[in-house]
Design a protein around this nucleic acid. Structure first.
Length: 256
DNA sequence: ATGACTGATGGAATCAGA
């Protein structure tokens, strides 16, 4: 089973590029973030024509997450991250596909930091850590995939010294990510490529992709049953170099 | 230190992204 995560930065702006990539690579499951579209404008029919069932949690203008499954309908297990009934942002959805639990998440950016947006990021992280506690020990494979908006270590940033005060790299943010990992999650990309410089995002500014001034912020965290099945973890880097790209590239894992 | 680029909204200019 191949599972991908892709922050598409606008579902409808990216639809042609998304359909092309689906046709080329045919992932079994796709977690999407930053749909930037209300529920009713999600292109359900176009995805069905491409062979994918979908569940999604839309929101006007910002955020929004979806899970696609090839040849089947994902069985939704929940939407909205538990722990704050006041939180109206669409950033989390869970489902089952062929016995694998898939969690699709879009963690808040948190800039500027410090400030209310950074506080929201850290609180959201606490809720994700609480959800992680509930999921880590499951007997079935669990995959938490998405845009975490965290570079876990120095190797994940093109110039770490420039990012020390940024919400994506501040010590509090990295500490929260490591607290989640310490529950027993495996960072799939880093597990299979321990020393390699691998990025998943390149800014639109200043020819960041051309200079390879990137960040690794899209991650797959696997519980032990999922990690035992891990065969491959890669970034479809060339997608970022195409016409009208997202600022993120798709990332994917293969499970036995 | 600043600004550069893109998408959504709404129909210009602003917010948000990371």
């Amino acid at each position: 089973m191949r599972i991908a995560t892709f922050n598409i930065n606008g579902m409808n702006a990216r639809l042609p590029a998304l359909l092309q990539w689906l046709d080329e690579t045919k992932p079994d499951v796709v977690c999407l973030q930053e749909l930037k579209t209300p529920h009713e404008k999600f292109p359900e029919e176009a995805l069905k024509d491409a062979g994918y069932g979908a569940i999604w949690h839309g929101q006007k203008s910002w955020n929004g997450v979806a899970i696609l499954a090839r040849g089947t309908q994902p069985v939704e297990m929940g939407r909205g991250l538990p722990g704050d009934p006041e939180d109206v942002q669409s950033r989390y959805i869970e489902c089952m596909v062929d016995g694998v639990m898939i969690c699709c998440l879009y963690l808040p950016n948190g800039n500027p930091a410090p400030g209310p947006k950074f506080d929201y990021k850290l609180k959201w992280f606490d809720r994700l850590i609480a959800r992680g506690t509930e999921l880590i020990g499951k007997k079935e494979p669990v995959v938490m995939a998405g845009d975490y908006n965290v570079m876990p270590t120095d190797i994940d940033v093109y110039k770490p010294e420039r990012w020390l005060t940024d919400a994506l790299f501040r010590p509090e943010t990295r500490a929260a990510f490591h607290k989640l990992l310490e529950q027993g999650w495996t960072d799939a990309i880093r597990h299979l490529h321990p020393d390699e410089v691998i990025y998943t995002f390149w800014d639109y500014f200043r020819d960041a992709f051309g200079r390879n001034a990137g960040l690794r912020i899209d991650h797959f965290l696997l519980n032990a049953p999922a990690a035992r099945r891990l065969l491959a973890a890669e970034v479809d880097r060339e997608v970022r170099g195409r016409e009208k790209p997202s600022d993120h590239a798709p990332v994917w894992i293969e499970l036995k």
